[in-house]
Simulated assay, not measured.
Amino acid sequence: MTAVVPPPRSAEGLLRPRRLTRAEDGERLRSLLWVAGPGWRMISSAVLGGGIGERAWVLNAQVSHGYRRTDPDRHLAALAAAAGVRGPGVGLMTAADVSAYAHARDGGAEAVVTSGIDVRGWAASAEEGGGPRAPGTINIVVAVPAALTDAALVNAVATATEAKVQALLEAGYDCSGTPTDAVCVAARAPSPGDEPCTFAGPRSLWGARLARAVHRAVLHATSAR
């Protein structure tokens, strides 16, 4: 059975994830579920709901160390269904304890970050292949209350990643991340007559706000370890 813990009363803003718990293979595992509702477009590198499209929820699920399932998309879909969400969404996973997440906001942009950095390194490494390795994963979920073009959504992923690396270096980690990091950026779907933002780089309005929110959240999540 999945237990749902409501968000704290002090939580405000767009990103208000609920904490879920479940028993699986003799372990007590946790998840974060953000039900964004209709009217959102998301871009993600997630195994479930990845790519660009309309999405209504984001699930960030903790899995056991040494995860061996070869169908993580079906696993995440089953967890989302058990949590009561329907329709298209995004499913992320990590071996880290997601209940210890960090949240930051800047000018309306918000970021929630879960961090496991036991396995880390630089992206341009001499090491090749081998597939994903647990338990190191940094998952970043960002919400922006503005409409972004497809190109700006891609730009936002790059900006969030740059901010992540900046925070890791400031936290004292000589790395660009872990081999299994994932990101999801959610933006409002454009209303009739809206003109979506065409840029989300670090010097654009929403890119700058997104970068500062991600930077603070990653810095807090990694410095607390």
Rank of each mutant, 00 (worst) to 15 (best):
G53S: 08
A81S: 06
V119D: 10
L76T: 04
R41M: 05
A100I: 04
L210A: 04
V112H: 04
R209F: 03
G66Y: 03
L153N: 12
N60A: 03
A78M: 01
L153Q: 14
A96R: 08
R16Y: 03
P135H: 01
R69M: 05
R68H: 12
G84Y: 07
R16A: 08
L205T: 10
I43Y: 09
D25Q: 15
S125K: 13
A213M: 04
V144H: 09
D181V: 08
M42H: 11
G193Q: 05
L48D: 03
E195D: 11
Y67F: 14
A163T: 04
V144Y: 05
P132A: 14
A211Q: 02
V183W: 00
V112R: 03
A124C: 10
S115N: 09
W40D: 02
A182H: 00
L14Q: 04
A163F: 08
R133Q: 14
L32I: 09
W122F: 12
A36I: 00
L153A: 10
E162H: 09
L79C: 00
A83Q: 06
V98E: 12
A96S: 14
V154I: 05
E170P: 00
V35D: 10
A46N: 06
L15K: 08
R68K: 14
P190M: 00
A160R: 04
A156F: 02
R19F: 06
V214P: 05
V47G: 07
S115P: 06
G116T: 10
V144S: 09
V90E: 03
A77E: 08
A111I: 08
A109H: 10
S223N: 12
P145R: 08
G37R: 07
R133F: 03
G172R: 09
A81C: 01
E27Q: 15
A123P: 00
D150Q: 12
V58R: 02
G53M: 06
A213P: 04
P38R: 15
D181R: 12
S64C: 13
V119P: 07
V154W: 01
K164N: 11
E195P: 00
H220W: 01
V35R: 15
V214Y: 06
V183S: 00
L205F: 12
E195S: 10
A208R: 13
G66M: 02
N60I: 04
T161W: 01
R209I: 03
L148K: 05
R22L: 12
I117E: 11
W206G: 05
G13I: 13
P179C: 05
V154T: 02
H215V: 04
I43A: 14
V144L: 15
G66F: 02
E170T: 06
S64T: 15
A143K: 13
S31D: 15
V218M: 14
L205D: 11
E54Q: 13
R41G: 01
A82D: 05
F199Y: 15
A158L: 15
V35T: 11
T198R: 14
G121D: 11
G26C: 11
G177M: 14
A211N: 02
I140M: 09
N155V: 00
Y67C: 03
W40C: 01
S31T: 04
S176L: 09
A211D: 00
F199V: 11
E24P: 01
I138C: 05
P179E: 05
W40A: 01
R19A: 13
Y101C: 06
D194W: 11
L205M: 08
R55H: 01
G13M: 15
R225S: 03
L32S: 11
E127L: 13
A147R: 13
G193H: 06
A182G: 03
H65S: 12
G49D: 01
